[in-house]
Structures are given as C-alpha cells and as structure tokens.
Amino acid sequence: MSSENHNPDRQTATAFVRRLLQNPALSSYTPLQKEDQIIQFFHTNAGQLSPSLSTPQFFGRRSWNEILSLLVSALVELVNLDLEPAIRRMIDERLDFRFVDFLQEGSSPSDQRQIRSEVEQAVRDVVERHDARRFLVGPFTAVYYPVIERYVEEIYQRRSYIHFELTKVQRLRMGKDEVAEMVKAATLLKPAVHLISAPGASPDERSAGLIQQDYADNATKTLTKRFSSLPEPLLRTAVNANVSFQENRFIEATARLAAVLAARCRGYNPDAVVDRGADWPGKSWFATARRNYRFYGFDGKMIDELYQIAAEKGW
C-alpha cells in the first residue's frame, strides 16, 4: 500500500466513493458505467456536494476542485479493482477471434493468443488514459452483455438493409456468428483511436465524439503498426466507427453497426425497470436516435431497422 493511501483525505475519499459504488441504484451497471454515473453525479450536483464535503467531517477546507480530484482518483482506483479482472474475463470468454482468418484469406491461420493479447493490451491502454477511458463505457457494456449477438441474429433473420450492407456491400465472407464477433471486437477497439493523440488532446470535433476521415485514416495506419497482430480491416472498422456516416457514406457496415451499438449501450441496463406506459429501453433509445442520427453521425436506415427490431422483440 502506498504512503498516499494513509492520507486521511484519501481514505475519506475512498470510503465515500466505496459507499457510492455500493448504491443499489448502480447495482446493475458495469464497473465503467458506475464510474461514468458517479463522475456525472459529481459534476451535476457539485453545488450541493461541495458545502457538505468541505466540512471537517469529510475534507476540511479543501476547494471543490481538490475534492473532486481526490474523489475521481479514488473512484478510478476502486473501479480498476473490478475492471481489470472483468477485462481479462471478457476478452477470454466473450470474444472469439476466429473471424480474423476470414479477413486474411490466403494467409496462414492467425495466432489467436497473440490477437487476444493485443486486444487486451489495447483495452488496457485505453483504460490507462483518463481522457480515452470515458469512450470505453459504451463499447465495454456492448461486449459485456450479449447485446451485439442478439441484434446480429435478428439482422440475419430479417435479411434486410443491414444484412445487405454487410454481405453485399461490405462483402463479408463469413457466417453470422463471425460477423457478430467482428462487430464486438471492432466495438471494443473503437476507443483505441484516442490512443494516438497526445494525452488530453482529444480528437473529437464536437461533443458527439466524432473524428474526421483523414484523422481516421492516419489513426488506422498508426494502430496497425502498434498492434501488428490485429488485421488492418478490423482496426479500420474500429477507427471508422468514430467517423460520421454523414461525412463518409462508404464507411463499413460493421463500423456503422459498432458505432450505433456502442452508443446504445452506454446507458444500457439489463435490469432496467420499465414504467407502465413507457416503451422498452431499446425501442426508446432507437426512437430518439432516429431523430438525432445526423447529429451522432449514424446511418439513418440502419437506425430504422434496429428500431424495428427493438420494437418487435421488446428490447
């Protein structure tokens, strides 16, 4: 234990945050979602929290910025305790990289262990970067729960627009299970684009977190060099999931799908209670996304189809 952990303020912050993390309202969320929720809670309620936390019972006469820094630091430390084993478990149990062989036709079989290791490294690198970490919330949740598999299954059942885009336009020569795994891998690697910028210099051009196509092309090249075992199409898909479809109509369908489902899963809660008179969470989310698809750079027709699926399946 470091000497810093013996600091009384640090201990108070850890105890305070620990109790927040144990709040039943957050019990159904992933570790990163809990962190996201608590940070947002700090920002939204700073006016009410600051006077209470500036008392001798908590942090004495420290300024709110100092208190916030202590709290966030303690929060990240506590969340990491749960997050690290969760990342390992997720990559080992929830991801199957055999689809990589379909992307590298003619090449020798891929080294699955090496791919797994590099994906894990990429995710850990994102987690380490405080400015990139928040972009992992949605992707992590999308892979943590079987959301992507369910939607891909339905997409293949319907054989409609998204299926056409995947099989005829993007020409993926693989089964639906492999497509689902590719979308999952691309979703998880989506925030890796933030690894190539200097810390603190976020590449997003506006609050929707989108990047320019030129930036994406350079990012793809850099990441391909950094994670040499990962196929370029996978990394390109992951990076292009950050590009607006309004800017580039030729983005891969897998990237478009990854972008939508990562955004959908940021606040995803499998145990969400639906009020009488309200639509299902998935249907509600896609209904709103149908109106805002340009703002977030989504493919409108893809959103329409996913909305239909969510409405029909009661998701």
């Binding site: 927040l20 709040n23 309202a25 957050l26 996201d36 929720q37 608590i38 940070i39 947002q40 809670f41 920002h43 939204t44 309620n45 009410q48 929290l49 928040r134 919330v137 997003d204 506006r206 609050s207 929707a208 977190g209 940021r266 606040g267």
Partner: peptide, 11 residues
C-alpha cells in the same frame, strides 16, 4: 446532453 452521461444517482 451530448456525450455527457446522465446519472441515476441523486443527492
């Protein structure tokens, strides 16, 4: 709200 998440926690 944009990219900022909302929180289920309240004071």
């Amino acid at each position: 709200r944009g990219e900022g998440a909302s929180s289920d926690l309240s004071v």
